[in-house]
């Protein structure tokens, strides 16, 4: 087959796929509030239970960042920029991206495995026969829970990350505790934090959407569910990094 035709075919199928996923997402987002109790359950699953993972990730990232910036900064006698750069770096970039990636690993996989299993064991068909719309019952609460929770997780991660930097700064790098904290806030602007939280909301949508899409379209028994789970995590992770680049370009 000639290469032009192959390229065309790939482009068409990519466009078609994008359209399908977009319609799926729009349907999921539109059916908001049909099942409040499910939304609460998903907020617990996606938000609350992700706190330890996101918190630990942020703690170690903030601490490592402080060490790196200190040793890098020393090269041009600017070791004392540590608090400001840790705060800005966590809020604008590392908090949302690493938090999003950790949630992608934890949540996109769980959603895809759960919904995929429900698909291949006919539980989703059973929902239909019980007059319950699977998108409203399963997809919508997960999308909204992730969109609402990720900014909160990112916010908590920012604070813990800055604390991680502070711990290292005070205990290993010889900073004065009060001065470190004062310098953390001094150079941090509101938009640094808000842009990071907005990124978090976008990443939440990407994570839950990947999990729901690959779960709902799973087929072929246990191996199909395994494939769906892998695809969901890969798509969510790549999606987060790509969206991060696009949003950073847009915001700054």
């Amino acid at each position: 087959m000639n290469p032009i035709r192959l390229t065309g075919r790939a482009a068409i199928s990519l466009t078609r796929m994008t359209g399908r996923v977009a319609i799926f997402a729009a349907r999921g987002l539109a059916r908001v509030g049909q099942h409040p109790s499910e939304l609460v359950r998903q907020i617990m699953q996606i938000g609350w239970l992700s706190l330890p993972v996101v918190g630990l990730t942020a703690l170690f990232t903030g601490a490592a960042l402080a060490l790196q910036i200190h040793s890098g900064g020393e090269r041009f006698q600017a070791g004392d920029v540590v608090p400001a750069i840790v705060a800005i770096g966590m809020a604008r970039e590392l908090g949302p991206v690493l938090g999003g990636l950790m949630v992608a690993a934890r949540v996109a996989s769980a959603i895809a495995a759960e919904l995929g299993t429900m698909r291949v064991t006919e539980q989703i068909d059973a929902l239909v026969t019980l007059s319950t719309d699977p998108v409203g019952w399963l997809v919508s609460p997960r999308l909204w829970a992730a969109i609402l929770c990720l900014p909160l997780l990112v916010g908590v991660g920012d604070i813990i990350g800055i604390m991680g930097g502070w711990l290292i700064g005070v205990n290993a790098l010889g900073f004065n505790s009060a001065i470190y904290l004062a310098n953390s806030w001094a150079y941090l602007e509101g938009w640094d934090v808000v842009s990071g939280l907005l990124k978090g909301a976008a990443f939440g949508l990407i994570v839950a959407l990947s999990g729901c899409w690959f779960g709902m379209t799973a087929s072929g028994g246990a191996s199909g569910v395994g494939r769906a789970t892998t695809n969901a995590v890969v798509a969510a992770s790549v999606g987060i990094l790509a969206a991060n680049f696009a949003l950073t370009g847009l915001f700054f």
């Binding site: 759960e114 299993t117 006919e122 068909d125 929902l127």
Partner: peptide, 30 residues
């Protein structure tokens, strides 16, 4: 179809119970 489903019940060949819910919630789902 929505009207039809409102007054419909189905036993699937593999039962297709919701495994995240206890039995009584499965039965009482509707």
């Amino acid at each position: 179809r929505a009207d039809f489903m409102d007054d419909f019940g189905m036993l699937f060949q593999n039962a297709a119970l919701f495994d995240s819910l206890p039995v009584w919630r499965n039965v009482a789902f509707r």
